[in-house]
Amino acid sequence: MAVDEATKKQDELELYQIDDKAIMPFFECHLEELKQFIQERRGQNLSLLELLKQFIRTYKLPFNMQRYMSVQTTYIKQVLQERMQDRQVAVSRWIQEHAGRHRNRMIQLQCLYLDRIKDKLLPEVEKMLEQRIENLQSKLDENK
């Protein structure tokens, strides 16, 4: 039980480290992939929020790669301080042992964070997708 409480507290701390300002630019940057991803799942009757979470889990991309790498560097430094090993070996070992788990944890936290901001996020993403579809339709109409 104590582990569960400690994990919850850690999750809460890490949720507040997600960069709010990076979320919409992330989806804008991956708009084509997102649009295709949503179209491929059109018959599944999933909400936009669930589709966004699936997209994040499928592509395993942090909202802010620069911040993600900075946090990962901090984790590596902490491990290096705890283990006084050759730096190259320690970094390589950390990556082998923790990088996948660290990325999966960050992706899960991003999905949890979408639940917190869904009321603001979903209308913005819907509008962005609609505009993209309209732009593509306009280009198709011009080429006819």
Rank of each mutant, 00 (worst) to 15 (best):
L114S: 00
D4F: 08
L112P: 03
Q96C: 08
Q96A: 11
D19K: 08
C29A: 09
Q96P: 01
S47L: 03
E142N: 13
M84T: 13
H30I: 04
D19M: 04
M128Y: 03
Q110D: 01
N135V: 06
I133N: 07
L129F: 06
L109Y: 02
L51A: 09
L121W: 03
R116C: 00
R87L: 08
N64V: 01
E134M: 01
D119T: 03
L122T: 12
A22T: 01
I107D: 00
V91M: 01
R93S: 13
A90Q: 08
L31Y: 02
K53A: 10
R132N: 09
E5T: 07
I117D: 02
Q66T: 15
K9R: 08
D11P: 02
L49F: 00
I76S: 11
L61M: 12
I38F: 01
R93W: 09
L49T: 01
F37A: 10
E33F: 00
I133Y: 06
S92K: 10
P62G: 09
V91Y: 01
L46Q: 10
E124H: 11
I107L: 00
Q72L: 15
D4G: 04
S70Y: 03
P123D: 02
N64A: 06
Q66G: 13
G43N: 13
R105I: 06
K35C: 06
Y113G: 00
N143I: 00
A99M: 09
Q88L: 10
K8A: 11
K53Q: 13
R132Q: 11
R132M: 04
L49E: 01
R101D: 15
L80H: 15
L49H: 03
K8M: 08
E142A: 13
L140R: 07
G43A: 09
M24P: 13
K35G: 06
E5L: 11
Y75I: 04
I56Y: 05
Q72N: 12
R87V: 06
E50G: 07
T73E: 12
P25N: 03
K127R: 04
K35L: 08
N143P: 04
E126Y: 00
E130V: 12
A6Y: 07
E142D: 15
I23V: 11
L34A: 03
K144D: 13
